[in-house]
Design a protein around this nucleic acid. Structure first.
Lengths: 206, 206
DNA sequence: CGTACTTTTGAATCGCATCAAATCTGGTGG
DNA sequence: CCACCAGATTTGATGCGATTCAAAAGTACG
């Protein structure tokens, strides 16, 4: 099995598990898995994009998570069934790992610790995300995002600004306008795929 | 050591760990731990309330999580340092477990699986919370909360409505008004410590 | 009883969603 | 190579809903 496996996975997974990994190509518009189904495989997104969605009681689907790299459903490892759908929004590639084998690997305490670390990081990330979504105005959300997800004041976009808008829970029109305002008053610089804070202005909360 | 330990903990923790648990009384206004400090103990809140807060780059503290029962910092088990403060908003009691012992217990694969389950559940809960915070209007947020956190259409309040407001990321005035409206049009019934959906009206998304 | 806090109501304001439409863009096929 | 299309980006106008500030009424507790 000489498929390409990201370094991250190579370090994380025990040898026996790596052998059982497969490459899985997925087309935009298809599903990686469905709500209610038994998790047979764990998906690690290498390229493309998939979103976790769920149908609410009222019928509308809502997005739980957008994933452009990394595990898609790490929380479902021990679940009996998926609690959401995984819909591919961009054609790409994933590594599949048999869930059963992954569960058994948890017996290996070295791997168990790594998995716990993975989950812990995701929890911290999600808490930060919730914190961000609780902010009232777009300016605050955007700056919070750049500070928490960016590197040295620069946020590299994984996709387009429209996706960014939904990530912080606002309409794309409003986001574009906010960015434009912040650019004019000199707090940040926008490129086609990044946002960079300048040091000229320091954002002061009231 | 014959302190009271909740059933949940008794089932989760191995015997050796249970022996090392201690009761920890905390006063409103004090801190259970501080950002940057090394995690010596894991806290399991039995009564009272604590919030996880973090000081942003701009100086204002923001709430990451409100906890009225259960583990407070499960994600920090393997961390070198806490990434937030734990501030007590209500006097109460916690069970403390030495972090080092807890880490060692992860070697026990039976416990490791339970811990992974604990983290997985928290991830799912947080994803649902993010989903809720992304909703645009208060009515949607409130109904979403009742449906996801409530039991059979009834949400029991863990605290007061003011806390509920911050939980869904809105001002308390706005929440009170929304509840009042929903009560008048017959979609729910409010008591001093619960919200119950009626079946008369079915909420239809546009 | 007094204090602190929650609950409630009121009024003014503003930011964002919404709807509409124009421009720009990259990618596709003829 | 160009026409074309789907999608992203941008700008505009409008209205609603939530915030904000203020203040009153209710409630728990020492």
């Amino acid at each position: 099995m000489d498929i390409y496996i990201p370094e991250l996975l190579r370090e994380l997974l025990p040898k026996e598990l790596l052998k059982q990994c497969h490459a899985h190509h997925f087309e935009k518009g298809t599903y990686l898995f469905h709500q209610g189904k038994k998790p047979e495989y764990m998906f690690f997104i290498v390229s493309g994009e998939s979103v976790l969605t769920r149908i609410s009681n009222h019928g509308e689907p809502t997005t739980l998570q957008r994933c452009k790299g990394g595990f898609l459903s790490e929380a479902s490892l021990l679940s009996e069934k998926y609690h959401c759908d995984a819909y591919a929004t961009q054609t790409g590639m994933a590594i599949t790992i048999p869930t059963q084998a992954l569960r058994e690997a948890l017996m290996n305490s070295d791997f168990a610790i790594k998995w716990v670390q993975l989950l812990s990081r995701e929890i911290m990330r999600l808490r930060t995300q919730s914190e961000r979504l609780s902010l009232k105005d777009i300016k605050s959300k955007l700056l919070h995002l750049i500070e928490t997800e960016g590197t040295k004041g620069t946020l590299k976009l994984q996709a387009d600004f429209k996706s960014l808008a939904s990530e912080i829970g606002v309409t794309h029109e409003a986001l574009y306008r906010t960015i434009s305002t912040l650019e004019k008053d000199g707090t940040l610089i926008k490129t086609s795929n990044s946002l960079q804070l300048t040091r000229k202005k320091i954002y002061l909360a009231t």
